[in-house]
């Protein structure tokens, strides 16, 4: 399914991640999945949370630059080739995968968070699997 991901700009230095996570905690936000992309100077914190709009508002109020982006959450069966099958379908449709990371929860099992160049179409393709 298509879900909202919160992305936050962070500088690549000690304490910045801790500070951002503290703001989410204080706003009562639960983090379901997280990925941290880094360059030598800055980082991008990407999180899947229980209340994206509230999380975005909390980050904004704290003075952070953030955005909500549409990403795909694709459930993964625990068997050989399930991820490969998803990615193959997406790429053969000419859609680019910008980044992805894994998520797992006790209720819904493992899934892949995928950001593509065309989320709606990619979702359509995955649904047909």
């Amino acid at each position: 399914m298509l879900i909202k991901q919160l992305s936050v700009f962070l500088e690549n230095k000690p304490g910045t991640l801790e500070e951002a996570l503290k703001i989410l905690k204080q706003a009562g936000i639960n983090i379901e999945a997280l990925s941290l992309a880094d360059t030598s100077e800055f980082g991008l914190l990407r999180v899947i949370v229980d209340d994206p709009d509230k999380a975005k508002a909390a980050m904004k109020a704290a003075g952070y630059t953030s955005s909500l982006n549409e990403v795909i959450s694709a459930p993964l069966r625990q068997e050989v080739g399930s991820l490969s099958g998803i990615i193959q379908k997406i790429s053969s449709a000419g859609i680019n995968v910008e980044y992805m990371y894994a998520s797992s929860s006790s209720t819904s099992g493992a899934s892949m968070i995928i950001k593509t160049s065309d989320p709606a179409r990619a979702m359509e393709i995955i649904s047909m699997l």
Binding site: Q5, S7, F9, A37, T39, F42, L44, R46, T65, S66, S67, N69, E98, Y99, K115
Partner: peptide, 16 residues
């Protein structure tokens, strides 16, 4: 430069 929401992106390559 301070990164503002207007030109912020969730993708590293866009920011680079």
């Amino acid at each position: 430069i301070e990164v503002e929401e207007r030109f912020f992106s969730d993708e590293v390559r866009v920011l680079e």
